[in-house]
């Protein structure tokens, strides 16, 4: 039974239009792939609530969240950049996930410490984003997402700028945290084969609509549509 459901969503931005119906079971990790301009980021924005669909419903656990403000949704998201406030320490940045005014309880502090430990940042918590590496910045952002304790985690290519080794480590970390916290994850990537390692399912988008959806091996191994075949040609295989 689906945990996250997008029911006949339509969303227009000028001439461009997005149409999608998607179902994701609880605890699953979905890789969202497709060329630039396919609508991947827009789809995440719709789920996160930064954009409002023209028509259709977004359900989490059978509750329609379409009208909720971003902070009210059971969803958290990591962006491509600007995930951290440059003037705040890593600790404060992470703590913002517990309370947006930084009024922290003992339980909150405990949560933050565990998130720091889980992302290996305990030693760096007093540094500012400018004083740590790119990988550490994204780990901190991930730690904050953990503190928000939202069941759905959306990743909009946050690791794109990291080197392959680091990117793989981050993917493994996401996978680990997903299993530990039972998160439902949607991760956008330009590198389907890399992200396939941690994903259960793949959604392929093309020109604003979902072309294919299915288990990783089958979808990537035997693409049905010419568009996906074409796309996979240029992203390289193993």
């Amino acid at each position: 039974m689906a945990f996250l459901t997008l029911e006949q969503i339509t969303f227009a931005l000028g001439d461009w239009q997005l149409r999608a119906s998607v179902q994701v079971p609880q605890g699953h990790c979905v890789a969202l792939i497709g060329a630039s301009g396919a609508g991947k980021s827009t789809l995440l924005s719709l789920i996160a609530g930064f954009e409002t669909p023209d028509r259709g419903q977004i359900l989490v656990n059978d509750v329609d969240i379409s009208s909720f403000a971003p902070s009210q949704r059971p969803v958290t998201m990591m962006f491509q950049e600007h995930n951290l406030f440059a003037h705040l320490s890593l600790y404060d940045n992470i703590a913002l996930g517990c309370h947006p005014g930084l009024k922290l309880t003992a339980t909150d502090r405990d949560t933050i410490d565990r998130a720091l430990a889980a992302t290996g940042l305990s030693e760096l918590s007093s540094r500012r984003p400018a004083d740590v590496s790119g990988g550490e910045r994204q780990r901190a952002a991930l730690a904050r997402c953990l503190c928000q304790k939202r069941p759905v985690l959306l990743l909009d290519e946050p690791f794109a700028s990291l080197d392959p080794r680091l990117r793989q480590q981050m993917h493994e970390l996401v996978d680990q945290l997903r299993r530990a916290h039972g998160l439902t994850v949607i991760v956008v990537s330009h590198l389907p084969h890399e992200v396939a390692r941690i994903a259960d399912e793949v959604i392929f988008m093309h020109e604003g609509s979902v072309k294919e959806q299915g288990p990783v091996d089958i979808t990537l191994g035997d693409p049905q549509s010419p568009e996906l075949r074409d796309y996979l040609q240029f992203t390289g295989g193993e």
Binding site: A48, G49, A69, S71, F85, L88, P100
Partner: peptide, 25 residues
Amino acid sequence: RHYHRLCQQLGLEGWMRFRLIDWPA
């Protein structure tokens, strides 16, 4: 421009947002 979505997602609004994010800037 940089932090709008992040603030929206974290529910940073009004006075809290001013004090923590805007004022330092």
